[in-house]
């Protein structure tokens, strides 16, 4: 289980989550996103294509980081959610809240188009 990041051009950063996004990994994701935001990197894609689980703490981390991104005129979008993850997002209406894209490329296109 790990968190990774990658610059994908046009000041857009990709952050990926491999494994279960539960309380063992949530603090690492929050730290990774906070570090990027504090260094002025406010256009973020969180790639959840290799994430097989998320709990309420993971959702809180995403909401909090998105708020921070917006405060610095950035954005945070999601991509690659599998059916189980989408079910969890739908359970709390977060599928209507977040900008969710099927893959990295469409997520990147959405950020670079704005």
């Amino acid at each position: 289980m790990s968190i990774w990041q990658q610059a994908v051009g046009n000041d857009v950063w990709l952050v990926g989550v491999n494994g279960r996004l539960d309380q063992t990994l949530n603090p690492d994701l929050e730290q990774e996103l906070t570090t990027l935001l504090e260094s002025g990197k406010g256009q973020l894609i969180v790639d959840l294509s290799q994430t097989n689980y998320i709990n309420s703490g993971g959702l809180r981390t995403l909401v909090t980081s998105w708020r921070k991104a917006r405060q610095q005129n950035g954005n945070l979008v999601l991509c690659g959610l599998n059916g189980r993850l989408l079910e969890i997002f739908r359970m709390v209406g977060f599928d209507q809240l977040f900008q969710i894209y099927p893959d990295r490329q469409t997520a990147q296109d959405s950020l670079t188009a704005t």
Binding site: S56, R60, R70, V92, G93
Partner: peptide, 23 residues
């Protein structure tokens, strides 16, 4: 406080969402 929107409504604002008590 979570989005509960009718079909076709614009997405809610992230700042209006309260995530305490989600568990």
């Amino acid at each position: 406080s979570l989005p509960d929107l009718p079909e076709g409504a614009p997405p809610p604002d992230i700042d209006d969402v309260k995530v305490g008590g989600l568990g």
